[in-house]
Structures are given as structure tokens and as C-alpha cells.
Design a protein around this nucleic acid. Structure first.
Lengths: 131, 131
DNA sequence: GTACTTGTACGAGTGGAGTCGAACTTAGCA
DNA sequence: TGCTAAGTTCGACTCCACTCGTACAAGTAC
């Protein structure tokens, strides 16, 4: 049951019922596209570390999703779990479980449809003290 | 000295040195346009009440600035002071003192220059439980 | 089997944000 | 002179987010 939160604690409001391409693991619990709230997304993106994660995914992902280790973030694993979950529960990213690894990708289509231009701002962002 | 914070407590990093049109009071301390940080702005806009304030200013202000009372917010005055200051210190709004009243306006030009499209998202936002 | 790796769950500590009441300051007006 | 209105400041409270260490679960490889 690794990587699967229990029903009692998962806060996802509406889990998407989208037909998946064959061979992909199901996404972890996430809000449906229509349930993504602007104030929640802005709150998720107001943290520099998470802004960095999303920006790196946008600029360097090349259509693939990535594990937590790929980002090269100098934080304990429990802290990274916290931030990646915050992004997923806000609807910013989607996470899938591949064996041991949990890979993340930005929900580009959903976010561009609901908040056009927002991801452009994230991509253009520069960290306070360099990259 | 009402409405003027002391030098010791004001956190504004760089106060703008812009020549003012005649007859307008000086703006209260605010970050210069170049010092406005995306993560700070997103944090300021992640609160539903502040999102509501900015949206109302954008949709109904008609080029004029407005007092706190104009918004019709059902909160104590001390709470409103807190939120209006958060917006101003993040660089989202500008406040000027007119006698007893402190009027707010959105820094539309500055924000559109630094974060194009962001204010459109705020204007298009709908509160969770109606307006 | 054992060891290693990825990531979670849990608990604790810390700090900051949101909320509010009460007292205060100031401007305008009767 | 005194009252009223707009908004601040201060202190206190609560709650949540961030951080982290530790322990645990589950694949993978030897």
C-alpha cells in the first residue's frame, strides 16, 4: 500500500474518472480539473521550493515525468513528500507510481484551460538566489 | 502620524522614487516595481478575502481608488488593516492617505508589466460561495 | 534470504498567518 | 469644546504550514 493514502485521510474532492492510456499506472488522488481552485493553486505556488519544482518540470521535462530525486533538491525525503503532495492536492501536478518511484508531471492542459497564462508566469520566474 | 508606519517596522525593501502627479498624497511604503516577487504576490492572492478585494477593485473601480469601507467586507477593522497591508507590502495595491481615509488601488501597470496575465486570472476568479 | 533504494507515515518543534477586541490617533463637523 | 468616523497599533489567541528525524513499507538486485 505504499504511496496510497487511506480513504479517511485523502482530501481529494473529486477524483477524475478519465480513461487512461494503456500501460500507465493510475494517478494518485487529485482534484478533478473543474474542482481546481485558483486560491489553492496560488497558495501552492507561493512557496519558492514548489515554484522551483514546477518551473523545472515545465522547462526541462520534455514530455516525461520525473521522480523526486531528479530535481536535485537538498531536503530530507519527508520534506519533499510534503511539497509534492501539496502540489498534487492543489491540482498543479499529477503523480503516478512506477514500482518504487513516484513520478510527477505538471497538469499543463488542465491548468492552461482553467488559468491561461499562469504557467507562463511560473516558467518565467527566477529564484531569489539563482537556480 | 496615523497611517504611517515607523521606520523600524516597515518591511518595504525599496521605496519607489517616482514623481507624483500634483495634488496626490504620497503612497504609503511599498516595494518598487522591480522588487515585486512572484511568490510574494501569489501568497498575497492565495487568501480568498484578498482575492475578493483585488477582483472588486479591478472590476468596479473605474480608475478611482477606494476606502476600506467601500468593499463592504464583514470583518473587524483590525482584520481589514491586516489584509490591506499584506496586499500593499506584496506590491499588489497602492494606498494613499486622504485625510482620515486610506484609499487603495491596484498597481495595474506594474503588475501587467512584470506578470502579464495575472490580473486577468484574478478578474475572472469567482468566490467559492458567490459574491 | 539480505541489502539497498524510493518514498510514505507519524510525531514533534517552530514560526508565521489569520482573527479579533480594546485602546489610540487623527480629521472633520456641530 | 466635544463628538463621530476611519483606520491604526498592540496584544493575545488559534491554527496551519514548513521542517525534520525516525520508523516503516514495498520493490529490486545480489
Amino acid at each position: 500500500m505504499t504511496g496510497q493514502r487511506t480513504e479517511a485521510t485523502q482530501p481529494a474532492v473529486g477524483v477524475e474518472e478519465r480513461p487512461e492510456p494503456p500501460g500507465l499506472p493510475d494517478p494518485l488522488p487529485e482534484p478533478a480539473a473543474a474542482d481546481i481552485r485558483l486560491e489553492t493553486v496560488l497558495g501552492a505556488l507561493s512557496d519558492p521550493l514548489r515554484l522551483r519544482i514546477v518551473r523545472k518540470l515545465l522547462l526541462e521535462s520534455e514530455e516525461f515525468d520525473h521522480t523526486c530525486g531528479w530535481f536535485g533538491l537538498d531536503r530530507p525525503k519527508s520534506s519533499l513528500t510534503h511539497h509534492f503532495r501539496a502540489l498534487r492536492e492543489a491540482g498543479v501536478t499529477r503523480q503516478r507510481q512506477y514500482g518504487l518511484e513516484r513520478r510527477s508531471q505538471v497538469r499543463v492542459a488542465d491548468l492552461n484551460a482553467r488559468f491561461p497564462g499562469l504557467l507562463d508566469l511560473v516558467a518565467a520566474w527566477t529564484p531569489p538566489d539563482g537556480d
